[in-house]
């Protein structure tokens, strides 16, 4: 698209560039590959395998670790917990954030300008979690919500709300205003215009946003470890549990790391188009 015109046809340089790009991609994928390779090894192969630890080439792979780990009730429970918490937080954040995004996109606010409101939402995202983890802990204790899915849903929804507002605000701005205005002229309420016209048009973005915030919640560790103790343990907290009094058990860690990493990474691929906008909080359209 935007290659300098003079470069066109410089095929040798482009070939080298392609090669470099492949190498770069390899470097960035290697750690994930490495975790996978570790998960297939016997404990005795952990420290003695040479080179890049290629299964069948450098060692004989085994599925024993996967069978041992994935089958345990603790692993299954943590996967279920993470799914519940991440879906719950995503749903709640969408529920709260979508109307708010619509409001700043379509209405004019006077005393606090629209951009001030948007920015105020954003400031929540920059807030360091460690500054709020102790009060959150105390609040949840007072509400009797420690070690519940609900506590983690409430907390995570709060922290992903800015993403929802920012991504969807831009989406609503990009929708043609005429359709909604026509509906209003036909006697629909603002709510009706939002619900029946704008929302269905924004549905693909809505889904992508949901997936992104699902992934963020899935990866969250600090609040999960502070607020869960038995019933609500999520995948990252479960991973930390593979470390016992004797240290890291590499072979189990490989399996647990893969179970943690794969779902959010798949989601990232699905929602690719919206990622730049989401991660820069809308500052770059991408």
């Amino acid at each position: 698209m935007a290659e300098p015109a003079a470069r066109r046809g410089a095929s040798l340089a482009d070939g080298l560039a392609s090669l470099a790009a492949v190498l770069v991609a390899f470097v960035f994928l290697f750690p994930i590959y490495w975790a996978f390779s570790q998960s297939l090894r016997n404990p005795l192969d952990t420290f003695t395998v040479a080179g890049f630890g290629i299964p069948w080439v450098n060692f004989t792979p085994t599925l024993a670790n996967w069978i041992d780990q994935v089958g345990t009730p603790e692993t299954l429970r943590s996967l279920a917990n993470s799914t519940i918490v991440a879906s719950g937080a995503a749903a709640l954040a969408l529920l709260l954030g979508t109307p708010a995004a619509y409001a700043v996109a379509r209405f004019r606010f006077a005393r606090w300008k629209n951009r001030d409101i948007t920015i105020w939402f954003l400031s929540q995202r920059v807030l360091p979690p460690v500054a709020t983890v102790v009060p959150f802990y105390l609040v949840m204790r007072a509400l009797g919500l420690l070690d519940t899915h609900l506590a983690l849903i409430l907390v995570n929804a709060t922290f992903v709300l800015p993403f929802v507002v920012v991504i969807l605000r831009q989406t609503f701005l990009d929708l043609p205003l005429e359709l909604e205005e026509a509906a209003l002229v036909d006697g629909a309420s603002h709510w009706g215009a939002f619900w029946r016209i704008a929302l269905p048009l924004a549905a693909p973005t809505l889904a992508a946003t949901g997936l992104i915030v699902f992934a963020f919640t899935w990866n969250e560790f600090l609040f999960a470890v502070a607020l869960s103790s038995r019933n609500a343990i999520t995948v990252p907290v479960h991973i930390a549990g593979a470390v016992d009094t004797r240290g890291v058990q590499f072979w189990f860690m490989g399996v647990r790391a893969m179970t943690a990493i794969v779902p959010p990474v798949l989601i990232a691929l699905l929602a690719q188009r919206y990622i730049v906008r989401g991660l820069t909080l809308g500052a770059v359209k991408g």
Partner: peptide, 19 residues
């Protein structure tokens, strides 16, 4: 049986007892 990571066991126990 409630298994807790070594680094968190003391913390979880004390939180339970203190609260």
């Amino acid at each position: 049986i409630v298994e807790l990571p070594f680094a968190e066991h003391y913390t979880k126990m004390m939180l339970d007892l203190r609260n």
